[in-house]
């Protein structure tokens, strides 16, 4: 059996992304480089033969996924798992945890201005966040962080795939920056605000 066949069989049968070194453990004669080569060959093969699926890099691993253009055909089948979608509050909470991890519940609540225990529990049950440690202070609060499952859920290759805070178009900031110099050029409070450090401490 050729390496690319072995790799293909493993990726076909796995329901989570696998890293090259994990796949290489399938056989003693197989090493990580061979797996990487095999993955490239398979990707090329699927492309040339116009398969309805391809090999995608997700959460640091490789996964066989159908191509997005076939989504419409798959939706009406009960036998095809339907991906779950998160609510607005769940997404906001997840955004805070993703960018501030490790972070405690009280901090999450301060940023959103609302209670977060229910949402965090739901996210934890769905494996998107987990307890990653305990903070200092009264009661040594639980600290949360995102999981591998988080990357898989959003199809991110790694945490670096998340949008960088400085590339976000923030309306309030943009508008204020253009208005401020004309209206109140000498406003001393302007410098007090953490304009360039939106990810820094908020206290």
């Amino acid at each position: 059996m050729r390496p690319e066949q072995i790799v293909e069989a493993i990726l076909f049968a796995s329901d989570a992304p696998l890293r090259a070194e994990e796949i290489a453990r399938a056989d003693e004669a197989l090493d990580e480089d061979q797996v990487e080569v095999a993955i490239q060959q398979l990707r090329q093969l699927y492309l040339e033969s116009e398969r309805a699926f391809d090999l995608v890099e997700v959460a640091g691993g490789h996964q066989l996924l159908t191509r997005p253009e076939f989504a419409g055909y798959l939706e009406r089948f009960d036998t095809i798992p339907r991906p779950s979608r998160l609510s607005g509050p769940a997404l906001e909470t997840l955004a805070i945890i993703a960018y501030r991890q490790p972070i405690g519940r009280l901090e999450v609540e301060y940023v959103r201005g609302v209670g977060a225990s229910g949402v965090i529990r739901t996210l934890q049950e769905r494996g998107l966040v987990d307890v990653v440690g305990r903070g200092e202070g009264i009661g040594r609060p639980l600290l949360y962080g995102t999981t591998q499952r988080f990357l898989e859920h959003f199809g991110f290759e790694s945490m670096e795939s998340l949008p960088r805070p400085d590339e976000l178009p923030v309306v309030l900031r943009d508008r204020s920056m253009t208005i401020l110099p004309d209206e109140s050029p000498e406003d001393p409070d302007q410098e007090e605000l953490p304009l360039d450090d939106p990810t820094g401490e908020h206290r």
Partner: peptide, 21 residues
């Protein structure tokens, strides 16, 4: 955070268009 969560929602929708076996 609102902006980021909207980005996450779009990423989630894109990912949902691809299915595992």
């Amino acid at each position: 955070i609102r902006e980021i969560s909207q980005r996450l929602e779009r990423a989630e929708a894109d990912r949902a268009r691809r299915r595992v076996r």
